[in-house]
Amino acid sequence: MKFGVVVFPGTWSDTDCFHAIDTVLHEPVEYIWHRQTDVQGFDCIVLPGGFSYGDYLRTGAIAKFAPVMTAVAEHARRGGLVIGICNGFQILCEAGLLPGALLRNQSLQFRCMWTNLRTENAGTPFTSSLSRGQVMRVPISHGDGNYYADDATLKDLEDSGRVVFRYCEADGAITPDANPNGSLHNIAGIMNERGNVLGMMPHPERCCEPLLGGDDGRLILESIVSGAGVAAGLK
């Protein structure tokens, strides 16, 4: 499983993702510069967190025009895996690779904290090492993570099992208190119809080593590496 980590100007989770894949998981990984127009040869593209192009206009609104995004869309069309984390999720929504949008946090403040995530769909290429209902501890770090979609889109996401992660209490209960940003249905991560593009606000790459307070994030990366979910999840 060869990973490519995209670097936009203003990206800052690139080195964290690279470290988790390379040093922790010992999988092949390379950086992909935002001006690159070809991403062939990569199995999984990671769009990391950060403030691409400063995100002064709207998160991800400029990044979607980066040359690399045409190649990423093509990679997704071919069935390649794409995982957008934090700013990467925002970019995927802006680029139309995922539905909906990420609004300002309900608190109108940035939030960096540990959250609990309930796995809603374990039959995806990103969650095959998890089981349905399994709760993970994964940190968030964002000012715009408040997922929004219109009612029809939301119903479609729910009905087709494309809500992959939800913010929950430690025991898995879905409550307003467990929701750090006001997202609809406590949504923390969703995928596209085909099941090969995942967007999530929490940062699995920040919790791959016990020294850092937890290693649940490994489960997501290991799911991708196992490749097991690819066959099961892709339509």
């Binding site: 800052w12 920040r206 850092l212």
Partner: peptide, 11 residues
């Protein structure tokens, strides 16, 4: 206060 600051990036 500090939950408004990213205190984890760079892992």
């Amino acid at each position: 206060v500090y939950r408004q600051y990213d205190h984890q990036v760079l892992t």
